[in-house]
Simulated scan of single mutants.
Amino acid sequence: MKNVIAVGAGAAVGTYLRYLLNIQTLAVEYPIGTLLENTTGSLLLGMLSGYFAAVVPKPWVKAGLGTGLCGGFTTFSTFASDTVWLYLDHNIIQSFLYVFVTLGGGVTLALLGFILGQSIGQKKQGKEKAGGAL
């Protein structure tokens, strides 16, 4: 039951943050808000995954932050819709660029985030072990 509550709470926060970001980028005709949400969300999920690979959290924490927060913050359906909108608006090159930057950037940032998160988690584990040995 804790997992369900954590996912719901995380999703509510993530969705609210996505909404706030979209409000800030409405004046731009290019879907920069969705691009930022998805790439930033990929970085954050990568960092969490890397950290959780080194420091095992309680299951509800992992579910709330990963599935809930990151799932609520990112949006594949809006990415797909924005891509179609750019294409139908005769911005074929922009639509392909949008797909390339979103997917390539998202995967790259997830990898970098994983490496960073794992490094932070390993340092935390090292400090805890060193502190416990004294």
Rank of each mutant, 00 (worst) to 15 (best):
I93L: 13
G64Y: 02
G113E: 03
A80G: 14
L86Q: 05
A53G: 12
L109G: 03
K58W: 02
V7I: 15
S49H: 04
T75G: 04
E128R: 06
K2R: 13
Q125V: 15
K58T: 12
V56D: 01
T108C: 01
T108W: 01
K58A: 15
G8S: 06
L48T: 13
T39P: 11
H90G: 05
G64C: 09
L109V: 00
Q122D: 04
G132E: 08
V101E: 03
K127R: 12
E29I: 00
A53I: 00
L21W: 02
L21R: 07
L134Q: 04
A12H: 05
E128V: 11
S95H: 08
F73L: 14
E128G: 03
V107F: 02
G104L: 07
M1F: 08
G68R: 06
G10W: 01
L112S: 04
G121I: 05
F114L: 11
L48M: 10
L21E: 02
L103Y: 10
Q118N: 06
Q94R: 08
L36K: 14
V101G: 07
V99C: 10
V7G: 05
W60S: 13
M1S: 09
T75V: 13
D82G: 11
Q24M: 12
L86M: 06
N91P: 01
L109K: 00
Y16D: 09
I32C: 03
L111I: 15
T34L: 03
L48V: 03
T25V: 14
G71Y: 10
N91Q: 15
F96C: 14
I32V: 13
V7D: 04
V107Y: 02
L112G: 08
L17P: 05
K127W: 10
T78S: 14
G33Q: 00
Y98E: 01
L109C: 09
P57V: 15
G106Q: 06
Q122M: 12
S42A: 15
V107L: 14
A110W: 00
L103M: 15
S95E: 03
K2P: 07
Y16C: 12
L116Q: 10
K124T: 15
I115T: 09
A27V: 09
W85A: 15
A53C: 10
G126A: 14
A6M: 06
V99M: 13
L20N: 09
V56G: 03
A133Q: 10
V84R: 03
V55Y: 02
Q24W: 14
K62W: 04
A6E: 00
T39F: 06
F96R: 01
K2C: 00
